[in-house]
Design a protein around this nucleic acid. Structure first.
Lengths: 366, 366
DNA sequence: TTGAAAGCGCTACCAT
DNA sequence: ATGGTAGCGCTTTCAA
C-alpha cells in the first residue's frame, strides 16, 4: 500500500563494475578491461576479476555500455514475409534457429521485427535508422524490396537471405539453388522418369527462379523439350501447391515425376498425388528442396536437395557482425553447396523401421 | 584508407538535449520534461522546445534514458519449446504475431530468446535477471519449469502462455480448454458417433491434460464408458500423431470419430485415416483444436475448436506491461472462450468452391 | 600493467 | 514553472 518507488533492496538487483572491482580488489577500469578482453591485464588480476564476476553474477549493463561505445549490441532481424508463409514453412524456423544461436554465441541481442504490412515496415525503418540496432539481418525480401533499398542507401550494416534483386554490393547468404535443382532433376531423368513436372515458388524470389532454371537445365542437358504446361506455381505454399498438383495431374495423367522447389510444397504434393489414387514413388517420384526435419518424418520419406539452413543463418550473423566491425569492408556473399539426399519418395531407400508404438506420453522437456 | 574511428560527420549524428536546450533557450531539464510529456511546462516554452526538437531532428538516446529510468523498453519473449515443435506447429507463429503486433503498438522492442537447451536457458536467465528487459513473455513452459520458477521467485514481471504448473500467483493467458474439448466431443456424440477416440498432447502441459479431461467429460455426461485404449498420445507432434492414429485404427477398427488436441495433430490424423483406406468424415469424423488458418485449407476442411490465438498473444503483452507499470499489482489471469467451428471433417459443411486454377504466379508482396 | 577521473546523454531531485 | 546538478554504469584517456 505504501507504493515505494523502487529500491526494494530485498532483491540483490544490479551488480555493477564497482561491486566487482571492490570484491576483486582492483579498479573499475581493470574490470572493464577484463570484461572486454583487453590483453593489457595481468594474469593473476584477470583471474581474480573473473572469479569475482562469477561469484557476484555480474552482467554488464548494455545501456551504460552503449552510451560509451555507440553500439547497442542488438541486431535487428527483419522478417519481410507474410505471416502465413513465415509460420507455415519450417524453413524460416530453421533459419531463425541458426541466427538466434549465433547471436547468443556472440553475446548479441536479437530484436525481432515482423513487418507483415507497410505500416509496420515504416515503423521498422524508423527504428532502424534511429540507430537502435547495430545491424540488420533481412529475411525474405521479394524482388527489389523498397525497404531494403532505402536501408542499403542509408548504409545500414545488413545481410540478406538469398541473392537480392537489384543490388550487387549488398552482403547475402544463399545456396546453390540452380545446380541443386539440376542435380535433382538429372537424378529423375537418369532413373528412367519420362514426364517430369515441377512446382515452383514465387518467382520474385531469385531462389525460386533459380530452381526453376535448374529444372530446365537438366531437361535441356538430356535433350528433353521444355514443356511449360509441366511447370506450375505453388507460391511456396502448401495449399497452393496441392491445388496446383491436382490440376497438373489432370492435364498430364502420364506424369511420373515431380520436382518441388520446397519440402513444404513437396509434402503437400505427395498428399495430392496420393489423393488422386497414385502411389509415390511407384507412379510418381517426388523430390523436394530444403531437407527440413519433416522430410525424414513423412511417409514415404522425402528425397530432397539439402541446403544447410541453420548454418546459413549462422553465416548471416557472422557477415553482419563483420560489416559492423569493419564499416568500410566490401560486401560479402556466401553461397552454400547443396546435396541431393535420396530417400523413399524416389524409390531410393527402404521404408524406415516400424513406427514407434503409440500411446507413450514421453516429452522432450523436463 | 585513413581508417577513421567514427565521426564521419556526414551524418548529423548526435543531437542531444543540450543542443535542443540551447536552441530553445531553456535548460536541459525543461527539454526532458517536454519530451516526456511532463505537464509542468509553460505553453510557450513547450512550443519553443517542440520547434527546436523538430528543427534539429532530435531523437532521444534510448541508452542514456534507460540508464536513468531503469527501463529498457524491451520485452523478452522466451520460447521454452524444442525447435522442431516450435516451428512445426503454426500455433506458435500465430501467437508470436499477436505478441509482435501488440509490442509494436506500445512502442516496445521484442527481444527474442530461444532456449532450445539448458545451456541457452542459463544464458537467458542471466540476461533477464541482469535487468536487460523490463519483463518477460514466457511461451511454452512444460510442467513446473525450473527457469519459470526462478524467474517468479526473482519477481521478474512475467506472463505465461497457458496455465502454469505450481504457481497460483503468476499472470497467464489461457483458453477454456476443457469446456472447448467437451463441446467438440459432445457434438460428435450428438451426431451419432459411437466409438470416439482422442489424440492428446504432452500431458505436462495443462492445456493437454485439460483437453483430455474435456473429452472424458463429454463421454461421462453421455453415460458412455471411458476406454483408455481409445486415448493415444500425439505429443503435439504431427509425425507422432500420425503413427499413433495408425495404431489406434488397428486396435479399434470400429472407430468412427476422433478428437485431436491440436489442428496440427488433427491434420496428420486425417492423413493417416485416409492412408488406412477410410474416408473423412463418412467413416471417421475428425475435430481438431486451435482453428489455425490451415484448418480451412486442408481437404476436407477441418472442424475445430477455435481459440483466439493472436488475441491471446496481444493480451499477454497487455498483462506484462501492466505488471511493469504497477509492480505491486496482483497476478492477472485471463482465460479466453473457445468456439466450436464446424466444417467438412465432421460432415457439417459442404466442400468449398473449386480450387483456384493452378499456375498463377501471384505473390503477396510487391 | 594498473588506477583515477572524465564524461557518454539523459532524468530526477532540489532549489528557486 | 523552470534551472542547476548529481549521478545512472560503463569505457577510455592520461598518468603513474
Amino acid at each position: 500500500m505504501v507504493g515505494k518507488k523502487r529500491r526494494q533492496h530485498a532483491v540483490p538487483r544490479g551488480v555493477t563494475v564497482k561491486d566487482v572491482a571492490q570484491r576483486a580488489g582492483v579498479s573499475t577500469a581493470t574490470v572493464s578491461r577484463v570484461v572486454n578482453g583487453n590483453p593489457r591485464v595481468g594474469t593473476e588480476v584477470k583471474a581474480a576479476v573473473t572469479i569475482a564476476i562469477e561469484e557476484l553474477g555480474y552482467v554488464p549493463n548494455p545501456s551504460a555500455r552503449s552510451l560509451m561505445t555507440h553500439r547497442t549490441g542488438s541486431i535487428g532481424v527483419v522478417i519481410l514475409e507474410s505471416a502465413d508463409r513465415l509460420f507455415g514453412d519450417p524453413f524460416f524456423g530453421q533459419l531463425m534457429l541458426g541466427i538466434s544461436a549465433a547471436l547468443a554465441d556472440r553475446d548479441r541481442r536479437l530484436v525481432l521485427m515482423l513487418a507483415p504490412d507497410r505500416a509496420e515496415e515504416a515503423r521498422t525503418e524508423r527504428y532502424i535508422v534511429g540507430d537502435h540496432v547495430d545491424g540488420i539481418v533481412l529475411v525474405g525480401p521479394h524482388g527489389a524490396d523498397p525497404l531494403m533499398n532505402r536501408l542499403v542507401r542509408r548504409g545500414v550494416p545488413m545481410v540478406v537471405s538469398g541473392r537480392p534483386v537489384g543490388h550487387e554490393s549488398v552482403s547475402y547468404v544463399d545456396a546453390h539453388n540452380r545446380t541443386g535443382a539440376e542435380a535433382a532433376v538429372r537424378h529423375l531423368i537418369e532413373h528412367g522418369r519420362t514426364s517430369i513436372g515441377t512446382i515452383y515458388g514465387t518467382l520474385d524470389l531469385p531462389s525460386a527462379a533459380d530452381r526453376l532454371e535448374g529444372y530446365r537445365d537438366a531437361l535441356r542437358a538430356a535433350g528433353r523439350p521444355i514443356d511449360a504446361s509441366l511447370e506450375v506455381s505453388g507460391e511456396y505454399r502448401a495449399r497452393t501447391a496441392a491445388d496446383a498438383i491436382a490440376g497438373l495431374l489432370e492435364r498430364h495423367p502420364e506424369l511420373d515425376a515431380l520436382f518441388a522447389a520446397s519440402d513444404s510444397m513437396a509434402i503437400a504434393a505427395m498428399q495430392a498425388i496420393k489423393d488422386s489414387g497414385r502411389r509415390v514413388p511407384e507412379d510418381v517420384a517426388v523430390v523436394g528442396f530444403d531437407d527440413l526435419p519433416t522430410a525424414e518424418e513423412v511417409r514415404p520419406t522425402l528425397s530432397t536437395v539439402r541446403q544447410p539452413i541453420e548454418a546459413m543463418g549462422r553465416e548471416m550473423v557472422r557477415l553482419v557482425l563483420q560489416q559492423i566491425d569493419e564499416p568500410g569492408s566490401a560486401a560479402n556473399q556466401v553461397v552454400f553447396s547443396t546435396k541431393l539426399i535420396l530417400r523413399e519418395s524416389t524409390g531410393d531407400a527402404a521404408p524406415p523401421a516400424a513406427a514407434v508404438p503409440a500411446g507413450t506420453g514421453a516429452s522432450d522437456r523436463g
